[in-house]
Design a binder for these strands. Sequence first.
DNA 1: ATGGTGGATGCTCCA
Length: 263
Amino acid sequence: MRITTWNINSVRIRLDLIRQLVKQAKPDVLCLQETKVPNDLFPHQAFADMGFAHRMVHGMKGYNGVAILSRIPFSGGEPLHRCGKEDCRHLYARLPGGIELHNLYIPAGGDIPDPKVNEKFAHKLQFVDELGDWFKDARKKKQKLVAVGDFNIAPLETDVWSHKQLLDVVSHTPIEVEKFGRMQASLDWVDAVRHFIPPEEKLFTWWSYRNRDWKISDRGRRLDHVWVTPVLKTSLRSASVMRDARDWTPGSDHVPVTVEVAA
DNA sequence: ATGGTGGATGCTCCA
């Protein structure tokens, strides 16, 4: 089973790019974040035409939004709400073989890395805390779980273009990395991408729109992740980051990440 | 230190 995650930054203006992704990566299940569309306006027919007969969407007007599109039948979990908000950031599905797939869009956290003056950063930290607690309380590490999405945190030094220059930049601050680690420890989550691509190697999934030439400056960060619980570790078959997609137009600032799990 | 771009929305917010 091939699972692809992509922060699409508006699903409606990037349907052609999604068709290209589907052609090249051939995902069985596609998880999108930042769909930026309410459920009643989601382009269901386009995804049905691509072969995704099974769809679960959780969106709102203008912001956020997650969707699970699948060739394989699944039974629905429900949208989950965190931090007392209904802001469309967590959706999960139960796939055949007893695998439960979580699609996550963790808050970006604004610009100032201080929860006392920046409530978006406070929200992000609380969200990661809550999510880790929820995994620990509501699920077990012996369950077959996959968690994918835009986590908006780059944990390793090699997950950013300059560790030193990003220590004060939201996404790579020590407090975020620590909370990321605690969330990862909640179920002993395995980083499925680093399972195949060594942690010594620089690896990014996002490049800002604000760099004129993303490829030359290569100031990227690895914000998008795929995790599996320990029972699925031996089922992992491959992982890849579709770096070329950053050049597609009109492109997202994130690129797709695909993991193959024997199932 | 600053501003750079892009999407949705509607005279601005979010990333």
